[in-house]
């Protein structure tokens, strides 16, 4: 049987210590059983390692930062589409999702498919709105408050116990054990990601993560729970293991059924000493460890692409428990002219 060949644009090619999911997503796409693919990397910076991984990325184009607005992004995507005839784009950064969701219909009009949460879903699950989200969908969440001024954190000292979790609106989180530490974290994170900063109650327990895919109608297309075994100082998983946890999967199904989530996602969960789960965060895209899901039998990047194309997609119902991923760093040798080309022409 002849497999169709799709041209897929993928962002998140930075494979640094806090890696983007792009390279892992591409590995899943390359292993897809139902289609072949040509990968177009979409990068923001010249040193994103995926740009130079020619064995998995066929061509890379730089795209403008989300802060430049959707018109600039659309214009760049039109140029790339003219050259490459993109079938699908898979954005992998929280910060760029808003733009891609906004452009979804216009991209569709150009023949480019995406499979993203709706703007309402994207906004609703935002860290800033987590309390309301938990109340609306009957999901345990730790108490949290979005603050715009560090002094607002002082008032929370009376309500919450130390330590507090200080979180950026898109990325970064740190524990603070006193007000001085809260202040330092507030300043550091807000300088990088802007305001508000989210102050969250700390839940003692064990952290679990679930990655999966919702079809937008309340059905679970894929779900794989993982426990981090080795974490970096940024709290990112450098090693993890697939686990069989009914409660985590039930919570995932409940999340998908009640929100009718559309697209890939990662749930960050904390199981406290009593065995109760708290939802700490919903990442509205596939995580950097998505290749573990592929490795245990659920090729989520493939299924997401099929859903984007409007192709019938059977839900995954099984995965292997006790499979680990161990991440590693790899130094690539790159010719200067390649760096020069992406830096000056924005293409490689």
């Amino acid at each position: 049987m002849n497999k169709p060949t799709l041209t897929i644009g993928v962002t998140g090619l930075n494979a640094i210590d806090s890696p983007g999911p792009g390279v892992a997503v591409i590995r899943g796409l390359k292993e897809a059983a139902s289609f072949d693919c040509r990968i177009i990397g979409l990068s923001y910076e010249s040193l994103e390692p995926g740009i130079y991984m020619h064995e998995i990325v066929d061509k890379t184009y730089q795209i403008p930062y989300p802060s430049t607005g959707t018109d600039v992004l659309l214009s760049r995507l039109e140029y790339i589409h003219e050259k490459e005839k993109l079938d699908v784009i898979i954005p992998n950064f929280d910060a760029e999702l808003y733009s891609f969701i906004k452009l979804e219909q216009r991209l569709r009009g150009m023949g480019i498919h995406t499979f993203l949460p709706t703007l309402a879903q994207f906004e609703e699950r935002h860290k800033v709105n987590l309390n309301d989200f938990g109340a609306k969908y009957n999901i345990h969440v730790p108490r949290s408050k979005a603050i715009y001024n560090v002094n607002e954190a002082q008032a929370l000292e009376k309500e919450y116990e130390w330590p507090l979790v200080v979180k950026g609106k898109y990325y970064d989180a740190t524990l603070a054990y006193n007000f001085d530490q809260t202040k330092a974290a507030f300043n550091k994170i807000s300088a990088k990601w802007g305001l508000p900063i989210i102050i969250q109650e700390f839940v003692h327990g064990t952290e679990y993560n679930v990655t999966g895919l919702g079809d937008g109608f309340g059905n679970t297309v894929a779900a794989v729970p993982m426990r981090k075994q080795y974490i970096t100082d940024k709290g990112k998983a450098w090693g993890g293991i697939s686990i069989a946890d009914k409660q985590a999967l039930e919570l995932t199904n409940h999340f998908l059924q009640s929100t009718r989530w559309r697209g890939g996602f990662e749930l960050e969960l904390m199981k406290d000493k009593k065995g109760d789960y708290y939802l700490l965060e919903i990442n509205p895209r596939m995580p950097a460890w998505i290749y573990l899901a592929v490795g245990v039998g659920q090729n989520i990047p493939e299924a997401l692409t099929r859903l984007a194309m409007g192709w019938p997609t059977e839900p995954y119902t099984h995965y292997e428990v006790g499979k680990m991923f161990v991440r590693y760093a790899w130094d690539m040798i790159v010719d200067l002219h390649e760096f020069e080309q992406i830096s000056t022409n924005g293409e490689l």
């Binding site: 064990t206 993982m226 426990r227 075994q229 697939s242 686990i243 069989a244 946890d245 428990v321 006790g322």
Partner: peptide
């Protein structure tokens, strides 16, 4: 010894 529920 492997506990598949917790990953420990």
């Amino acid at each position: 010894v492997f506990n598949p529920g917790s990953g420990e």
